[in-house]
């Protein structure tokens, strides 16, 4: 039997534009998801430890193949106040989704067929980054959305005290600068697609702050800590020819 109740259903919304469907690996320690987007430039890794769920019960290893497109629609119409519960019994082909609105007591139940997802296993090596910078997640989202209205990619430059996001396109250029109190091994400058940063920043509601781990010529990491876990987004670097 598997049963997990989750209070941050907004997590689904944060990853739906990157991944259309995914295996959810359910273990007694918690739920994990690791998947690459279709263009193979971004990877989403989510870990939700058992302690973050009330209740959590998993007495055997289970892989649920879930359409995030469908899950998003279900969660979206439930509203922000709803909790989401996943249940599975001994039949691995279907699972139950239960949405509960705490304010009104309304309960919506679905029986969903588990999808057979042809998913490759990804090994992500440990990386030492030149800069690991923590900034308010709402500011990060505002900067990404604002610059992306007119421009396509953003250059990140970080020094001891400030991180600068600058961007240029046909209409001209723009930049945003933010103070930070993080440690750097040295100044850094790199370019990232704004479209993807805007996607990653949809996880803003999960956490007050976001941590950017940056080095030239290795995948960049954008991390949101959630209660008893994390949502990590990796993005492939742009490299000089």
């Amino acid at each position: 039997l598997f049963h997990a109740r989750f209070e941050q259903a907004g997590l689904v919304d944060a990853i739906k534009d990157l991944i259309q469907d995914s295996d959810f690996h359910c273990r007694d320690s918690g739920i994990a998801l690791r998947n690459m987007d279709n263009s193979q430039v971004a990877v989403v890794v989510i870990l939700l430890e058992a302690g973050g769920f009330l209740p959590y019960h998993c007495d055997r290893r289970l892989n649920l193949g879930i359409s995030l497109t469908s899950l998003t629609k279900i969660v979206h119409y439930a509203g922000d106040e709803a909790t989401l519960a996943l249940k599975a019994n001994d039949n691995p082909d279907t699972f139950n989704l239960v949405l509960e609105c705490l304010q009104t007591g309304c309960i919506i139940k679905y029986d969903i067929k588990s999808r057979d997802i042809d998913q490759e296993h990804l090994e992500i090596p440990k990386t030492d980054y030149a800069a690991t910078i923590t900034i308010p997640s709402a500011e990060f989202q505002r900067i990404c959305r604002n610059l992306s209205q007119l421009l396509e990619s953003v250059a990140n430059e970080a020094s001891e005290e400030r991180i600068k996001f600058s961007s240029s396109g046909d209409i001209g250029s723009g930049s945003a600068t933010l103070r930070h109190n993080s440690d750097l091994t040295g100044p850094i400058a790199l370019t990232i697609s704004l479209k993807y940063l805007v996607n990653f920043s949809k996880a803003t509601a999960l956490s007050y702050s976001v941590t950017l781990s940056l080095s030239s010529e290795v995948p960049q990491l954008v991390e949101y800590k959630v209660e008893s876990g994390f949502a990590r987004f990796y993005f492939a670097p742009q490299i000089g020819e």
Binding site: M36, S39, Q40, V41, A42, V43, E120, H121, L122, E123, I124, P125, T191, S193, V218, P219, Y234, A236, P237, Q238, I239, G240, E241
Partner: peptide, 14 residues
């Protein structure tokens, strides 16, 4: 100019 890479060259896909 710079070219967008894919993650396949950094993360292994056994």
């Amino acid at each position: 100019g710079k070219k967008q890479t894919t993650l396949g060259r950094f993360f292994t896909l056994p």
